[in-house]
């Protein structure tokens, strides 16, 4: 019997053989999944967003569906629709691609807001309602959405309220020189992908998620988290502070990160590690600091709040 922690490490290692030199991003993505949250990857095309999602799905043994978002995609294309079958003389529901355990919503900002919100509602509720009938989505249900940065032409950036539905937003970024060399030397990624071994069963994933919820959080750590939240609300660098939901998200993500690092309790380092990914898309610069990027803002938040010994 292999311990959950070892299984998780193997997942990280295996995905690391495909997405080279991005261990931190892989761990964040895995934490996000363990914390039962959805992930938004924001980056330029060709950075391996799709590959990461696919590799995670394979290693975790999840049913995988990829939906390419386009400007003419309709909600029914995602959710499915009732189709008339002549033989049976009745309407039969045809499941849309959303009925899978891991959905890759590729380039989500290319679709119209209407289609976006169909997906986001499903994410929030864990169920979809089509033609008056509510259907449960599979368990676990995990969405990895990718998005091109908003300055690209022909996109519909997700509104702030929708961004909040994602537990984390990460960027992959260019690989470093050494990783890129390996990438260039190595074989086709798709071939590697097919060789990946399933490390976890859905039951084991479920157990890991339960373990995350049981990770201990001590009062001093809550003090620290609260200081972060309070500061974001009181400081004029941010427009509106972090919501209570953001606070809960931060704790959940930090618990998952701690478990991934084989700890039964959350350390301030865990909070700090997930902080950019969890709050980066929830913080907005104040009126006097409009030019600042999300990572600047998170950096300031981190710097300003003192961690007592």
């Amino acid at each position: 019997m292999v311990a959950i922690e070892d299984r998780l490490d193997r997942v990280v290692d295996q995905v690391g053989t495909i997405i080279l030199g991005k261990e931190r991003a892989i761990r964040l993505a895995l934490s996000c999944l363990l914390a039962r949250g959805h992930l938004l990857i924001e980056d330029l095309p060709g950075m391996g967003k799709t590959t990461l999602a696919h590799a995670l799905a394979r290693c975790l043994g999840l049913q995988y569906q990829r939906i390419q978002f386009t400007s003419d995609l309709l909600p029914a294309d995602i959710l499915g629709a009732a189709v008339y079958e002549r033989q049976r003389e009745t309407f039969v529901f045809h499941h849309g691609p959303i009925f899978a355990q891991l959905i890759l919503a590729d380039e989500i900002n290319r679709a119209t807001p209407k289609t976006q919100s169909a997906l986001l509602e499903a994410m929030e509720e864990g169920q979809v309602t089509i033609e008056g009938e509510t259907r449960r989505l599979p368990e676990p249900f995990f969405v990895i959405a990718t998005q091109n940065p908003a300055y690209q032409i022909g996109t519909f950036p997700l509104p702030e309220s929708q961004l909040d539905r994602f537990l984390m937003r990460i960027e992959l970024g260019y690989p470093d020189r050494q990783a890129e060399r390996l990438l260039l030397e190595g074989e086709d990624r798709r071939a590697v992908l097919t060789r990946l071994v399933v490390d976890m069963t859905p039951a084991q994933l479920d157990e890991a998620q339960a373990r995350v919820a049981a990770v201990h959080v001590a009062p001093p750590l809550l003090d620290y988290v609260q200081s972060l939240l309070v500061f974001s609300r009181e400081s004029n660098r941010f427009r509106g502070g972090l919501s209570p939901r953001a606070g809960l998200a931060l704790l959940r993500a930090a618990r998952a990160w701690a478990l991934l690092h084989r700890r039964g309790h959350v350390l301030p380092e865990d909070v700090q590690a997930v902080l950019p990914a969890v709050v980066g898309h929830r913080l907005h610069p104040g009126d006097d600091h409009l030019e600042q990027s999300a990572s600047d803002l998170v950096g300031q938040l981190l710097d300003a709040v003192v961690l007592p010994a």
Partner: peptide
């Protein structure tokens, strides 16, 4: 500060005298 924190603070203070002060938001492992 409980005894645990006191012990850690003493340790940090000793390092600070060697020019290795703990950053204001630096966690123990970091």
């Amino acid at each position: 500060r409980q005894p645990v924190v006191r012990a850690w603070s003493r340790c940090c203070a000793r390092l600070a005298r060697r020019g290795l002060a703990r950053g204001p938001h630096e966690g123990p492992l970091a």
